[in-house]
Computed example of a mutant assay.
Amino acid sequence: MEGLSVADANLVMYLHPSKSRNASQAILRELGSWLFMFNETFDGVLLAYDVNIIDKKAKILSGVHPYFGLKLKANLLLFSPKPDMVIEGKVVKLCQESIHVIVLGFSSVIITAENIRGEFKYRNKDGEELFASKSHKRHVIKVGTMIRFLVKSFDEEILHITGSLTPAHTGSIRWLDRNSEEVSEIDRSATKSRDRESLGDKTVGEKATPLSYNNHIKKSKKRRIAE
């Protein structure tokens, strides 16, 4: 799934002298307080970590509060959804105007009616609400369905995602995986159509994620988790 990555990080953790007797525990508590929160330095939500203290001799900082610093090496599991990424989640609520999804058990998603492609039609069948494809009768989205959708935006403060089911390669994961060849053909046709519309208007877009750092934390490298 896109949006998940592992980062190898070099960290310096600054602790109060009162925590010097059990620095390891203090470090784990500090890292634990970062879990499931967006961290600007890491440019993502910290989901898990594995840390190794490499500096056994703490460096005392001068000042009113003589904190001491310890160097660490850590492997961090991060969730950082960006616009146009395709991620997965479970449908937890559905109505005529929207589909509500949960990702990784903590991040909420809303997909409103205007972001659901016309192929899907809302139905209430025997009291069960669902979106059924008019083109493929077995392609159904209902509560409990695992879906693949496109990220439109991500609110870092409340960890809320606005999603889209407009592209042909989004929808029920189970159906998409069983009909991958057909979906690929639809995507190729859509791409050719867009290319014809934009003929003569060439632009080059560059996406780069700079290294983030401050006086506490420095990230060494980041790699995406293989799907």
Rank of each mutant, 00 (worst) to 15 (best):
L4R: 10
S5K: 12
V6P: 01
L11P: 01
L11C: 06
V12M: 09
M13E: 13
Y14P: 03
L15K: 00
S18Q: 13
S20Q: 09
A23N: 07
S24V: 10
R29M: 11
F38A: 03
T41P: 03
V45P: 09
L47A: 02
I54L: 07
D55M: 06
K56N: 14
L70W: 08
K71F: 08
N75M: 02
N75C: 00
L76F: 12
L76M: 09
V86E: 06
I87R: 15
I87P: 15
E88G: 01
V92C: 01
K93W: 07
L94K: 04
I99D: 10
H100K: 14
I102V: 15
G105E: 09
G105I: 07
F106C: 11
V109T: 13
I111P: 03
A113H: 11
E114A: 11
N115K: 08
I116E: 02
G118R: 13
E119M: 11
K121W: 02
K121Q: 09
K125Q: 06
E129C: 14
E129Y: 07
E129S: 15
H136V: 12
K142W: 03
T145F: 04
I147P: 07
I147W: 05
K152H: 04
G163Y: 02
L165Q: 00
A168H: 09
H169G: 01
S172M: 00
R174D: 13
W175D: 02
R178T: 04
N179Q: 02
N179F: 06
S180W: 05
E182S: 09
D187N: 14
R188Y: 03
T191W: 08
S193T: 14
R194W: 07
E197D: 12
L199M: 11
D201F: 08
T203G: 07
T203A: 08
V204I: 10
K207M: 05
K207I: 11
T209L: 08
Y213I: 01
N214H: 07
H216G: 05
K218G: 15
K218P: 00
S220R: 12
S220D: 10
S220E: 09
